[in-house]
Design a protein around this nucleic acid. Structure first.
Length: 305
DNA sequence: AAGGAAGACAACCGCGGTCAC
DNA sequence: CGTGACCGCGGTTGTCTTCCT
């Protein structure tokens, strides 16, 4: 039924339905946007016909939801958003649309792409499956704590910038909308059961993670009944004592890929650090991790250490 | 500077669920 | 109740861009 493959078969398809495929043109975008603005979303097949778009309703819907919708946010994921994605993926697995509901302006497609291009890549480089316990432990006890620290550092820097008699008039971008979202999604468990569909909230209470006291800037925003604090504490409990100022200045200028850096260095630091419970980390053989890794200077851009 | 490899992103496909008829 | 149209989701693929040699 479908054309054999690829956009090159568009001509074959065109003889049947005169349907276009492939990238959308500006003109098509304008037409679609106009029709949705006038008639609202839904009834995509009808809309496509009425608008004279030689596209399937399906294609129109996808274009609108993933690209043309006015509230679609584009650009790099903030550390807050990355933390959310990790945490929600722990809970729900590949339920991209569900995860996207908690990241305003982000589409499931974008989150899915992020996961596949960034997260899975790093699992691969560590030589383990992205769904493996080993990889999840690294995320939970190493990367997520670092994300939290970066968020804290950014918030602190923002606050400092707001109070300081500034000589620079440059406005530092405030924490994004996702900042608040941390509160919203902080409920529920954060376990790493491989079976996301069967997770129960009771697992949160039985979390074995120690609840080391830690100051969390977002804490005051949280309903104490949520498990958000649990998330933050569980995330930070095993965090090595990295000074937060390593994160450089506020939101601006922060590398938005928490996974950047050298695995060998990152892991070595975690294992060596007295403040961190390295027993929580999987036992990676450093020798297995080659030299062709990113430079840590990329991640803690301003102050490599 | 050129070509290949890898990464990032946009778009398509198939499947299952829902709903109207 | 069966059927078909439509919608939404998750997986996959194609294309463009960037990086590296």
């Amino acid at each position: 039924m479908d054309a054999p493959c690829g956009w090159s078969s568009a001509a074959a398809v065109a003889e049947e339905e005169d349907l276009r495929r492939g990238p959308w043109t500006v003109e098509e975008d304008v037409v679609l946007t106009g029709y949705v603005a006038a008639q609202g979303e839904g009834r995509w097949n009808e809309l496509a016909r009425a608008a004279g778009l030689r596209r399937t309703g399906k294609s129109c819907r996808l274009r609108w939801l993933n690209y043309l919708r006015p509230d679609v946010r584009r650009g790099d994921f903030t550390p807050q958003e990355q933390l959310l994605i990790l945490e929600l993926h722990f809970r729900w697995g590949n339920r991209w649309s569900k995860i996207a509901q908690h990241l305003p302006g982000r589409t499931d497609n974008e989150i899915k792409n992020y996961w596949r291009t960034r997260v899975q890549k790093h699992a691969k480089q560590l030589g383990c499956d992205v769904n493996s316990r080993q990889f999840k432990d690294v995320m939970r006890h190493l990367w997520m704590p670092r994300l939290v620290e970066r968020i804290q550092a950014a918030a602190a820097a923002d606050a400092a910038a707001a109070t300081a008699p500034t000589s620079s008039s440059e406005h530092v971008a405030p924490p994004s909308a996702a900042h608040d979202q941390l509160v919203v999604v902080g409920r529920g468990d954060m376990c790493h059961s491989p079976d996301q569909s069967t997770m129960t909230s009771s697992t949160a209470g039985s979390s074995s993670t120690s609840t080391t006291s830690t100051s969390v800037p977002y804490g005051e925003q949280l309903p104490s009944s949520t498990n958000h604090h649990l998330l933050m504490t569980s995330v930070t409990a095993a965090a090595p004592d990295w000074s937060s100022d390593q994160c450089g200045s506020a939101s601006a200028g922060i590398s938005n890929d928490m996974f950047e850096g050298s695995w060998s260095e990152l892991l070595a630091r975690a294992y060596d650090d007295d403040g961190a419970d390295s027993s929580l980390l999987p036992d990676f053989q450093m020798s297995k991790i080659g030299d062709n890794w990113w430079s840590l200077e990329d991640i803690w851009s301003q102050q490599p250490y």
